[in-house]
Design a protein around this nucleic acid. Structure first.
Length: 818
RNA sequence: GCGAGAGUGGCGGAAUCUGGCAGACGCGCUGGGUUUAGGUCCCAGUGCCCGCAAGGGCGUGGGGGUUCAAAUCCCCCCUCUCGCACCA
């Protein structure tokens, strides 16, 4: 009798699959199988695989293998999101080149993925830091540039004085540098942006095409885009006559405006303050804002602010109101100035009470006592009836808002408009390890895109990339000196590089034709494989990566390069792997790594631990599911041992007849596991396979045969534990070919039902008896059987049965009275 | 504060979509067996309470409702997690 030994089985099949060139997607035009694109978010190659990879890729691989066994031509690629700051930092720390560090990690992660038996098409491997890839990242940038979708402008950015580099918004936590903890400053730098704001409404409208996205991800994207419907209204400054527009979602409260507030960064503030004689005071606020990071300003005090000494004129009432500058008004949203309605806005209310500005009620709640501006203790932001608003008095929200907008437009005093929270995508980085921005700055011609024939603009290797306050590429003595492609005069390359999110915004397209030389992708291949059938990855990419990819796809659609507008109609997020309720981290010393467990117990066990722990999208607390002893044998490993011996025994038993109950259970299991896999409910699928294993063993123990049950079990195990399945399939069952090719087992509908079932007998809703009856029992017979039950009779206890609920063959409920 | 999701044994979870045996499956634990240095392996038990048992009572965060019947549907409340958070 052979014993289950993963360390013997698994390396053997790793080598065999490699030698067989298995898991290659077919490009044979004669291959009529339906295509399925199973995509996993490509990993960032820092160090070896971590538990999060093991979780995500176990799920993604189960889907890919399931689809392949069902007869799909599956594209399941892998690649490396290889550019980025961590590589640069690691390289600085170790005194080696970022490329060296990155390629070493790629090698290690690739070896680990192979050891785990991931069914990747290795022939399509791509790497964003390879010139053959980033050539096309740069090409796409030039296309965006040509279409006016890439542009440069001066902008306030986060700056870490310690690391001497700009930081992405995501790298700033509570106003401090995520890595070194230094307080982040603001700097005004000229930056490259992609005009995602041109696509805002389409990003919202095309939500209908996102057939199967987690609800919370959709919500997060919607909130991030932040659509607000309202009106733009123009106030005039009394002292200068200049016109300042504001955005409001509540034009119906225009008659309640009692003051006007500028962002401290508003360009008119200094001039107006000097005119009003308040600049000494205002400049303190301005300096304060400059010293604070963009992110920490979120916490600015609502009540802080300074009177500018000038006044604004309310366009609907002609009333003159004081103007303030206050940090609670954001320059980045709307117009950078607001009309303040303290009666109906919480923030304006707090400001008004502090600065003793009058509060005026112009909306009265419908079913409550009338409010009084002098005595109210909080703003009323709800719906109600307009008052003190001229001829609009008596109109009710929300209809009143539309009515006011209509009137404003007719009067030429404002217009209905929509505002979004979403800003353009800042992609330039003053870092080394990214694709250089393919632009040449010519004194005569301005910004000129590098011609396609000159791409890629390669990243020079001989660069001092120590952080120093400017782009490392700018420090290179010769790299930036070029001639202008347009006029031939002396010119300079742009020395910034692109954000890694640009690299990852189109990699899924490149997979379809990874060696393609005439463009970023072969349009025919993309049309054949895309959109992605199932996209698996972490919820941390719910907003940025997924939103950017959707944007890029829409631009490519507009360019006529792809025939679809959404790249990922179906997305699933794996949960996080945590330890003791907290995320794993070096500083906490609680990191558990998958590869040592693979070595100890096998890749099949690691995959099963992950997928059996609970729903795929739920977090896994390693401490709870695995305990604290790293040597403790995982439960799934014991199960695999039992599967191994059961299948072996079943083969030895040959064609001995199988019990009818086992045949039915096998059919039911096929149905259930198939349905579970279609909905990515791996944990319940595995549980069903364990039940089938237990019953198979029981049949064998009883002297019966179980060969067909064992065969189905082996097939269904393959998406989760591909190694043991392959071993049992090819060696024990002696089947020709790989279990990875299936076929996925089918069930006989006639055999998914039991021939006998337990009839539940209830009296007044309480279970009193369980009777074994034929599954086909009639309602009358079921009722009779229930009434014959001794237990039920005792429970009725002479009372009158007033109602008989019969749901044959499952249940009878006798309802009594008295 | 706003939005989303979730509360079930000692633990992970199942049953929730479609109202009908709550606790599948697994971990852990208890007892027994084989082997024995231990682990492995095999068998039995394991929601709580009463009971030798048969059986009975209670039980899915709390309260109310609908129903013959509620973990499941509806209303209110509590708690937790996640996301967003001066967005005018």
């Amino acid at each position: 009798m052979r014993r289950y030994d993963a360390s013997e089985i698994e390396p053997k099949w790793v080598a065999a699959w490699d030698a067989e060139g298995r898991f290659r997607a077919s490009e044979d035009p004669g291959d009529t199988r339906p295509k399925f694109y199973a995509l996993d978010m490509f990993p960032y190659p820092s160090g070896d695989l971590h538990m999060g990879h093991a979780e995500a890729f176990s799920g993604g691989d189960a889907v890919a293998r399931f689809k392949a066994m069902q007869g799909h031509n599956v594209l399941h690629p892998i690649g490396w999101d290889a550019f980025g700051l961590p590589a640069e930092n690691a390289a600085i720390k170790r005194g080696i080149a970022p490329a060296e560090w990155t390629y070493a990690n790629i090698e290690q992660q690739a070896a680990s993925f192979k050891r785990m038996g991931m069914s990747f098409d290795w022939s399509r491997q791509l790497n964003t830091c390879d010139p053959s890839y980033y050539r096309w990242t740069q090409w796409l940038f030039t296309k965006f540039f040509e279409r006016g979708l890439a542009y440069r402008k001066k902008s306030a950015v986060n700056w870490c004085p310690n690391d001497a580099t700009v930081l992405a918004n995501e790298q700033v936590k509570q106003g401090a540098c995520e890595r070194c903890g230094a307080v982040v400053e603001r700097r005004d730098l000229t930056q490259w942006f992609l005009r995602i704001t041109d696509y805002t409404q389409r990003l919202l409208d095309d939500e209908a095409e996102l057939i199967d996205w987690p609800e919370r991800v959709l919500t997060m994207q919607r909130n991030w885009i932040g659509r607000s419907q309202g009106a733009e209204v123009t106030f005039a400054i009394k002292e200068t006559g200049e016109e300042i527009p504001v955005f409001t979602t509540r034009p119906d409260t225009l008659w309640g405006v009692t003051f006007f507030v500028f962002s401290v960064e508003h360009p008119a503030v200094r001039r107006l303050a000097e005119l009003g004689g308040t600049w000494d005071e205002v400049s303190v606020l301005v300096d304060q804002a400059r010293a604070t990071s963009l992110n920490s300003r979120e916490a600015a005090d609502t009540k802080e602010g300074v009177f500018l000494g000038v006044h604004a004129v309310n366009p609907v009432s002609g009333e003159e109101i004081p103007c303030y500058a206050a940090p609670y008004v954001l320059m980045e949203y709307g117009t950078g100035a607001i009309m303040a309605v303290p009666g109906h806005d919480e923030r304006d209310f707090a400001f008004a009470r502090t600065h003793e500005v009058p509060v005026r009620v112009v909306i009265q709640p419908r079913d409550a006592d009338p409010l009084d501006g002098d005595t109210m203790t909080e703003a009323f932001a709800g719906e109600g009836v307009m008052v003190n608003s001229g001829h609009f008095d008596g109109q009710e929200t929300p209809a009143s808002i539309a009515a006011v907008v209509e009137w404003l437009e007719a009067e030429g005093r404002g217009e209905g408009t929509v505002n979004y929270r979403l800003r353009d995508w800042l992609i330039s980085r003053q870092r080394y390890w990214g694709p250089p921005i393919p632009i040449i700055h010519c004194p005569a011609c301005g910004e000129v895109a590098v011609p396609e024939s000159d791409l890629p603009v390669e990243l020079p290797a001989d660069v001092d990339f120590q952080p120093g306050g400017d782009s490392p590429l700018a420090r290179h003595p010769s790299w930036k000196r070029v001639t202008c492609p347009t006029c031939g005069g002396e010119a300079e390359r742009d020395t910034d590089t692109m954000d890694t999110f640009v690299d990852s915004s189109w990699y899924y397209l490149r997979y379809c034709s990874p060696g393609y030389l005439d463009g970023p992708f072969d349009p025919a291949a993309v049309a054949a494989w895309m959109p992605v059938g199932q996209y698996t990855g972490g919820v941390e990419h719910a907003i940025l990566h997924l939103l950017y990819s959707r944007f890029v796809t829409k631009v490519l659609y507009d360019m006529g390069m792809v025939p679809f507008t959404e790249p990922f109609p179906r997305v699933m997020n794996q949960g996080q792997v945590i330890y003791g309720g907290a995320s794993m981290s070096k500083s906490k010393g609680n990191i558990v790594e998958p590869m040592p467990i693979v070595q100890r117990w096998g890749a099949d066990s690691v995959r099963l631990i992950m997928l059996f722990a609970g729903p795929f999208e739920d977090d896994i607390d390693w401490k709870l599911i695995a305990g604290e002893d790293p040597d403790r044998r995982p439960g799934v490993h014991s199960w695999l041992s039992r599967v191994f011996t059961a299948v072996g025994d079943a083969v030895e038993r040959g064609d001995a007849p199988e019990p009818d109950a086992l045949v039915r259970l096998t059919n039911r299991t096929i149905k259930g596991v198939t349905e579970d896999l279609e909905r990515f409910r791996f944990n319940t699928a595995i549980s069903k396979l364990q039940v089938l294993t237990n019953e198979t063993r029981a049949a064998l123990d009883g002297g019966a045969g179980a060969r067909s049950a064992a065969r189905s079990l082996t097939l269904m195990l393959a998406p989760f534990a591909p190694f043991i399945a392959e071993e049992l399939w090819r060696v024990d069952l002696g089947e020709p070919g790989s279990v990875a090719d299936g076929p996925w087992p089918e069930f006989d509908p006639a055999l998914v039902v039991e021939d006998t079932v337990q009839l539940i007998v209830q009296v007044d809703g309480r279970v009193r008896d369980r009777i074994e009856v034929a599954a086909t029992i009639s309602e009358a017979d079921a009722l009779a059987a229930a009434k014959a039950s001794e237990n039920a009779r005792r429970a009725v206890d002479g009372r009158e049965v007033v109602k008989e609920i019969v749901r044959a063959p499952k249940l009878v409920n006798l309802v009594t009275r008295g």
